[in-house]
């Protein structure tokens, strides 16, 4: 199946889902606002800390804010466009994956479109605004290349985030009736990457750069944008990490799918 056909099908399924959600979800605004509010609170918290300690390990307020916001933004993209990964547990346990397996459409694609987390819009907006603010407030020498690379890093960040979500949720194929506990834990580890990895012991640094490469969502892009010498060059691995994460996640998903047993009725 060609890439353009996959995009087309994704769009078709997504829009149908959106229509259904707009029709049934009356708490749309509440969800969105509560998500936005949570992020603003986190931001205020950071601000309060930096009011007292203006520099953490050589990182300024707006620089950490950028990392913080990258985590929101990718989370927002994840819930807005790939929320379905979080439904995988239900799809597997209720045997609803049967329906997807009967259609000539990649199963992953159908899983992605299973739900839309409208609250992601809140994360996306606040994340976007804060990133923009942090870029404005940190005297950056802009060039065309820098803009292109920033966009590229945003893209790889989203890919890494979604891949980890998919891989984590694929646990549903092994852990039956377990709810979301495992993928949620994996997801929450992203909080580590809201801060400079230099704060953490070596083991944690390696962990969030390799096994769950959350650092490539926030920290390594920040080292590039804000020109942190000592880390120069590492960000270039982001596309490799993104491709690797995507491949690994897809592999885990496919392997899990081969374990899928449907249900007895």
């Amino acid at each position: 199946m060609t890439l353009s056909r996959m995009f087309y099908l994704y769009k078709r399924l997504y829009i149908q889902q959106l229509k259904a959600i707009l029709e049934y979800n009356k708490d749309f605004y509440i969800l969105m606002c509560s998500a936005a509010l949570t992020q603003v609170l986190g931001f205020v918290f950071l601000w309060v800390i930096y009011d007292r300690i203006p520099d953490i390990n050589g990182w300024q307020f707006w620089e950490v804010t950028f990392m913080y916001a990258m985590i929101f933004l990718t989370e927002g993209m994840g819930s807005l466009f790939f929320e379905g990964t979080w439904r995988l547990g239900r799809l597997v346990n209720q045997g609803e994956l049967d329906r997807y397996l009967l259609r000539p459409v990649p199963v992953v694609l159908q899983v992605f479109c299973t739900g839309i987390g409208i609250n992601g819009l809140g994360n996306l907006l606040i994340g976007g605004v804060i990133i923009w603010q942090s870029l404005v407030h940190s005297h950056i020498q802009w060039s065309f290349a820098k803009v292109v690379i920033l966009i590229l890093l945003l893209l790889t960040a989203v890919i890494i985030r979604v891949s980890i979500n998919l891989a984590g949720n694929s646990a549903a194929f092994w852990i039956r009736n377990a709810g979301n506990a495992f993928p949620l834990m994996v997801h929450n580890l992203a909080d580590l990457a809201k801060y400079p990895v230099t704060l953490f012991p070596q083991a944690v640094r390696v962990f969030i750069s390799t096994v769950l490469p959350y650092a490539f969502i926030s920290f390594y892009p920040a080292t590039y944008i804000f020109g942190k010498s000592g880390w120069s060059g590492w960000w270039m691995l982001a596309p490799v990490v993104a491709a690797g994460s995507a491949a690994a996640a897809y592999g885990i998903f496919r392997y899990g799918l081969s374990k899928y047993e449907s249900t007895g009725n």
Binding site: M1, Q16, E96, R103, P106
Partner: peptide
């Protein structure tokens, strides 16, 4: 060859619908 096979078969499971729950049948 799941997708190739899916394109050439039709299947109805009486216990469970293949349709989208929230979408009008025509759609």
């Amino acid at each position: 060859k799941r997708m190739e096979n899916a394109a050439q078969i039709g299947a109805v499971f009486g216990q469970r619908t293949q349709l989208w729950w929230d979408i009008p049948i025509v759609e």
